[in-house]
């Protein structure tokens, strides 16, 4: 279970963050060289880091927009009686502020990069270890069936829009029957699936009762897929 940490690791986002910092570092080094600065490198790094500390507003998942450059203001206040020092630090403090915007921008494109790395419409992205998976019935009225794990490797899936309206009307009957007699469209989930390394996806995979469709939920939302063949056998 300790391996779980790896599943959450989002390689696309991490890589982009590293690139953003690398870029900032390169620019800062260029500035320092150009100015023939005597300021120690760790001090430069500290000022850049302070400059990058900002007060952010939350836009949407993982994307925060910097609005108030707190670190920059602190530096400005701290050096208000030492204008010469401020002149020295200013370009690095600004680099820090720029870095915070760059980091926010990078998070905005992260999903696009993520999609390029990890094909969301390929079952292999969600299940890299078909033999180790199991079927879990999440509904007492479900038929006793089992997973054809070999089929998980072969099967093709096609994303189609979630017909929640249709499921809903189907389930209206469900709502009107007593709890104890209710049946459901998705009575199974797949247990033990490991997604692709670095995808940061930790999916819950629901299986439709005929075994020919999946409802996959990740931290990026839900998607519904129809399969070329059934992945369930028995009864």
């Amino acid at each position: 279970m300790n391996l779980n940490i790896d599943f959450y690791f989002d390689a696309a986002s991490t890589l982009l963050t590293l690139i953003a910092w690398g870029l900032t570092g390169a620019v800062v080094l260029y500035i320092r060289k150009n100015r023939g600065d005597s300021l120690k490198l760790w001090k430069v790094a500290l000022v850049v880091f302070l400059g990058s500390l900002t007060f952010d507003i939350y836009l949407y998942e993982r994307v925060n927009l910097p609005v108030l450059p707190l670190g920059f203001l602190v530096l400005l206040l701290a050096t208000r009686k030492k204008p010469l020092l401020w002149l020295k630090l200013k370009p690095y403090a600004w680099s820090g502020v720029a870095a915070s915007f760059l980091l926010a921008g990078v998070q905005m494109v992260a999903p696009v990069v993520h999609d390029a790395f990890y094909n969301k419409d390929d079952l292999h992205t969600y299940i890299t270890n078909p033999e180790e998976t199991e079927l879990l019935s999440i509904h007492p009225k479900s038929l006793k069936r089992s997973l054809i794990t070999s089929e998980l490797e072969r099967v093709n899936m096609k994303r189609i829009s979630m017909n929640v309206m249709e499921w809903h009307s189907n389930d209206k009957q469900v709502i009107n029957t007593p709890h104890s007699k209710r049946m459901t469209l998705f009575p199974y989930i797949i247990l033990g699936a490991e997604p692709l390394w670095g995808s940061g996806l930790d999916p819950v995979i629901h299986i439709r009762k005929d075994g020919k469709a999946l409802l996959i939920e990740t931290n990026r939302g839900q998607a519904f897929y129809e399969l070329s063949t059934s992945i369930l056998e028995g009864e």
Partner: peptide, 11 residues
């Protein structure tokens, strides 16, 4: 996006 949560009951 649409959202659908299938019912779950485990014992």
């Amino acid at each position: 996006e649409n959202f659908y949560q299938p019912p779950i009951q485990l014992k």
